[in-house]
């Protein structure tokens, strides 16, 4: 269903001919990748395949060496992750990048605090009521259940904390959400909660790039699977037709995929 819609659309984010070296290591080799509105793209690959490097180049964490990044039809250059965020690209990291001693509201607005109007605002006084209201709206829209918005995150479960991290990303991502192993630290039930969130985000039209090692998770949630191996994209799979064995074969190189299968249009 998602595939037929995509072909008609322009990619939100597109990487063309990306190369990256770390000393003698050729970490990314001529990588082309597109992200279309309303899809979940899974990016899979073995350790060291270049998944995180690719994401870091796309979000301005690492400088672009050669190639180009096209964002909403225009060539862009992000020199820092803040620039990428200013363009509406948000990243969720695997290691629960929240401040555990702050509550959900403070975490969601961290670095983007709403200040009071007038002189108190200039003095740095926070508008906690407004931040709380906006958080409430956002969490209920995403159906994330946080028992008490004013409780510090140390008291929440890992899944609830990751829910807050995802809610934060979604709240500010107007264009793309990137999730780097968001379920790596979570149990089964909590993982299910995060996967539900990913679908809900996708259904609002915002594409999700989902990086994971967990093949069952990938096949549960992805509309399209991109396989990286040794810095190259070696396959693009349709989870409806391909099997987990196909994906593992592509990742490890014992491959039946001598040619790259392209599921999307040019």
């Amino acid at each position: 269903m998602a595939l037929s819609v995509e072909t008609a659309l322009q990619p939100v984010l597109e990487a063309r001919g990306i190369n990256k070296h770390f000393g003698p290591v050729h970490a990314l080799k001529n990588v082309d990748m597109s992200v279309f509105p309303g899809e979940v793209v899974a990016l899979i690959g073995d350790n060291g395949a270049g998944k995180s490097t690719l994401i870091n180049v796309l979000t301005g964490v690492l400088p672009l060496e050669s190639g180009e990044i096209i964002f909403t039809g225009e060539r862009v250059h992000f020199s820092s992750p803040h620039e990428a965020r200013a363009h509406g690209i948000e990243t969720v990291y695997q290691d629960l990048a929240v401040a555990p001693h702050l509550d959900a509201v403070a975490n969601i607005f961290l670095g983007r605090e709403r200040r009071q109007k007038g002189v108190p605002g200039l003095l740095g006084f926070l508008d906690n009521a407004r931040m709380r209201r906006e958080t409430d709206e956002q969490l209920s829209r995403l159906r994330v259940r946080v028992p008490d918005l004013e409780r510090r995150l140390v008291t929440l479960s890992g899944g609830q904390r990751q829910g807050v991290a995802v809610a934060r990303a979604v709240m500010w991502a107007s264009k793309v959400v990137i999730m780097d192993e968001p379920t790596a630290a979570l149990g089964v039930a909590q993982t299910g909660m995060v996967l539900d969130l990913i679908r809900q985000v996708r259904d609002t039209g915002i594409p999700v790039v989902f990086i994971s090692h967990n093949m069952p998770n990938v096949f549960q949630v992805a509309d399209r699977i991109v396989v990286l191996r040794l810095g190259e994209i070696v396959a693009e799979l349709n989870p409806k037709t391909a099997s987990i064995e196909d994906a593992v074969a592509a990742m490890t190189g014992s491959s039946r995929f001598s040619n790259r299968e392209v599921a999307t249009s040019d």
């Binding site: 992750p81 803040h82 965020r85 990291y93 990048a97 929240v98 401040a99 555990p100 001693h101 702050l102 961290l110 670095g111 983007r112």
Partner: peptide, 12 residues
């Protein structure tokens, strides 16, 4: 103090 890396990522 809670998580300097998270603060940095949040743009602080």
């Amino acid at each position: 103090g809670s998580n300097a890396a998270a603060a940095r990522r949040a743009g602080i």
